[in-house]
Design a protein around this nucleic acid. Sequence first.
DNA 1: ATCCGTGATCTGTGATCACGAAATAGGTTG
DNA 2: CAACCTATTTCGTGATCACAGATCACGGAT
Lengths: 230, 230
Amino acid sequence: MKSALDTMEPIERVTLGDRVHEELCDLLMAGKLFPGDKLSLRNVAATMGVSMMPVREAVTRLVAEEALTVAPNRAVSVPVMTLTRLRELTLIRSEIEGFAVAQAALHRTDKELMRMRSLDEQFRAAVKSDSPNAEKSLKLNKDLHFAVYNAARLPLLSGIIQGLWLKVGPVINLDLRSSSERLRSGDAEQCHARLVAAIEAHEPDKARAALTDDILSSSQFIQSTGILPD
Amino acid sequence: MKSALDTMEPIERVTLGDRVHEELCDLLMAGKLFPGDKLSLRNVAATMGVSMMPVREAVTRLVAEEALTVAPNRAVSVPVMTLTRLRELTLIRSEIEGFAVAQAALHRTDKELMRMRSLDEQFRAAVKSDSPNAEKSLKLNKDLHFAVYNAARLPLLSGIIQGLWLKVGPVINLDLRSSSERLRSGDAEQCHARLVAAIEAHEPDKARAALTDDILSSSQFIQSTGILPD
DNA sequence: ATCCGTGATCTGTGATCACGAAATAGGTTG
DNA sequence: CAACCTATTTCGTGATCACAGATCACGGAT
């Protein structure tokens, strides 16, 4: 028998631990958690209205992804970003995310391209807006980047990149709250334009170059603030 | 005051969850767990002589690393490897591990080079031995690879690669149990030799090429067995 | 012989308790 | 006022319990 039932898909079951994990991920990527901040399982559980158990699970996962660290004192905290760590992260991101956009340039569909253009436009509008709203801009920037990464059609790679963003998230904040991010957003806009254009033209090398410039200029801006130890 | 105390490092505290995690990692990388195998938290806990709690933590971490999957039925199992998944993994591994060996070729120390040569020699001896002992060969192969990766001095990258090996581990077994791996070990030996030579000569491109060949020939051997679905 | 409902059993998830260790506060002593 | 000691609180870890949903085996109906 064929019916409307055939269009059903297996429902994804989401546990409380998943919800807490997602919530903490958002906080990290949005830079709402500062490097060095300490987390208490009981406090997080209380503020989220759940038992300690789901929080334990979420934190365990984040520690596994190195988005959180547990000190020898067994205290969990947001990892402090050092200069060498940021440089390492920048190098790795350039290589891996550069590879992703190169693949995206080869395999993108027109539909995916349209979505990139839409997000690019929204981002450009957001940063040029009179009301800065850095949080919104940051989210649009993230959505645009991952729209490109997902176009590579390598879900494992997208997952790896997500892990990298979790690690750099907290310092994005540092730069953002110093709020002279505006200086660099001209760079970001230009890089995004070059990136989308290269992907449209199926030119992997140019796409990679554009993205590398984006990552590098952002990293160098943070380094130039001199707030990082080491 | 300066004394011998200055040479002390913070002792790493290892929890039961860590121990179980490590144990399961070994099982996965050694290919002792087959794709599709189901794990029961209570059973694992019983066989390891601990409570269910540390096992939960270890499994949670492994699921986060996608080394294990939890079905919508909430049943945890070793992910089944499909053809497209293996191809994706191969592509990503070539890029990321290739980058790692290129960096290693640039930054390796003489000490690290010596260790690579030692492991390479041991590996060659192990595969040519009259008593095959595939398990030992596999471990030496792993140690050699990671000796190179670690020489890149990018610990985050080593961690990412470790995650990739956790995902491919279970199929290594498939090929190993079919045990005609022997056919390919000639390839492996040659690739290793080229790899180590390139790293010794500080030639990143050649190192990357050698490693890519190693990964590719291994992957194609597994694909040629035709045991993978999809 | 095949299908389907029903019971017992086992599963992961979440909550709660227990314990030792670490952090903190408060008071005392130099 | 600073340094030390102690008592209280808070922390993560591990064990145990409770529960809903899934699996499996058995038995009756078609």
